[in-house]
């Protein structure tokens, strides 16, 4: 177990180092931030001053060396625009995004699993066909369009829910969260649903195919021969087996939900990390962009590790010591 963890953390550090290099070099190639930061009628001297102040006049290898050195000390640079540590800006916005992603994840599970299992148990029923057609829509409709339609319907027409922004927050272990109050939750519902829809469609598909496969297995037939109730067979025997792939895939998808909540956050003017990223790209605020991408890599790596541990906990046949990679 310990050896496994050490090996995994080693791999994780390698991935992070590789990402740091790629991200830094590729961002360097995109535009000159001074053009955007400087006053439109600034002369060449002023431009050079700004460039020197931000360290942009140094050659690439020197900038990169400095970046790595600082990163090792926990400093991912200061935002050109806000003149604050980039990491701090991102961490400030992180609870909002994490909260959004988790609510979306929970929604996708609670929508996806019951519908998928139902469709798997009754593959020929019209209700199941409807569910499966619905899941194709969930896959293919673009995120931003769903967001806009939800805003039109629930915020503009029915006026039930706010159209954007983040609701009032309360402090939970020192972190500002909004899901604890109804008023805060109201702001979360639409963006979380928008983000959840694609994943819910995925969960529907996974649960359906898992269920269809599981009900044909000998252990289900034996469970029926034992006289178990259909409810117990589905909720215990089938669900426990199909949860293994679902948890694995959803866990991995959580990373992408956090990282790419960008579109949803933009549509709903939701002040999370994704919105910060879009704003920073617009202003060529390199340190923030780099810090964001680094953060996302770290989140991905951590989630992957947790998923592996969870997978082993769910499936007794998996032993971590034996698994390669």
């Amino acid at each position: 177990m310990l050896a496994y963890l050490i090996r995994r953390v080693g791999q994780a550090l390698l991935v992070i180092a590789a990402m740091a290099t790629i991200v830094f070099v590729s961002i360097y190639a995109v535009g000159n931030p001074v053009d955007i930061l400087a006053n439109p009628n600034a002369d060449a001297k002023e431009m050079a001053e700004i460039s020197a102040r931000l360290g942009l006049d140094k050659p690439l290898w020197e900038q990169f060396g400095l970046f790595v050195w600082n990163a090792l000390h926990g400093d991912l640079g200061r935002s050109f625009v806000f003149n604050e540590p980039a990491l701090k800006l991102i961490i400030q916005r992180m609870p909002a995004t994490l909260e959004l992603a988790f609510v979306a994840l929970i929604m996708s599970i609670f929508i996806g699993i019951p519908l998928g299992v139902w469709a798997g148990l009754k593959p020929d029923a019209w209700s199941s066909r409807t569910i499966m057609s619905g899941s194709i829509l969930g896959f293919s409709l673009p995120n931003f369009w769903i967001g806009l339609m939800l805003i039109l319907l629930f915020a503009v027409q029915l006026k039930w829910l706010p159209s954007g922004g983040r609701g009032p927050t309360t402090s939970l272990f020192g972190i500002q969260v909004s899901f604890l109050t109804w008023e805060g939750l109201r702001y979360l519902l639409l963006p979380a649903f928008t983000l959840a829809l694609y994943k819910a469609a995925l969960v529907v598909r996974l649960s359906r195919s898992g269920t269809r496969e599981a009900v044909l297995q000998d252990y289900v037939r034996f469970a029926r021969a034992k006289g178990l109730s259909p409810t117990r067979i589905v909720l215990v025997h089938v669900l426990k087996n199909i949860m293994i792939p679902i948890v694995t895939i959803l866990g991995l998808e959580l990373g992408s939900m956090i990282a790419f909540a960008v579109v949803t956050e933009t549509v709903f003017a939701y002040p999370g990390m994704g919105k910060l990223l879009i704003d920073s790209i617009g202003r060529l605020d390199r340190p923030v962009i780099v810090a964001y991408l680094m953060m996302v890599v770290v989140i991905f790596v951590v989630i992957n590790l947790i998923v592996d541990l969870l997978y082993a906990a769910l499936d007794p046949r998996v032993r971590l010591q034996e698994s390669e990679g």
């Binding site: 297995q217 000998d218 252990y219 034996f222 469970a223 215990v236 025997h237 426990k240 087996n241 293994i244 769910l314 499936d315 007794p316 046949r317």
Partner: peptide, 8 residues
């Protein structure tokens, strides 16, 4: 295959 692999 008769026994459920994930239940004790």
């Amino acid at each position: 295959t008769t026994l459920n692999p994930v239940l004790r």
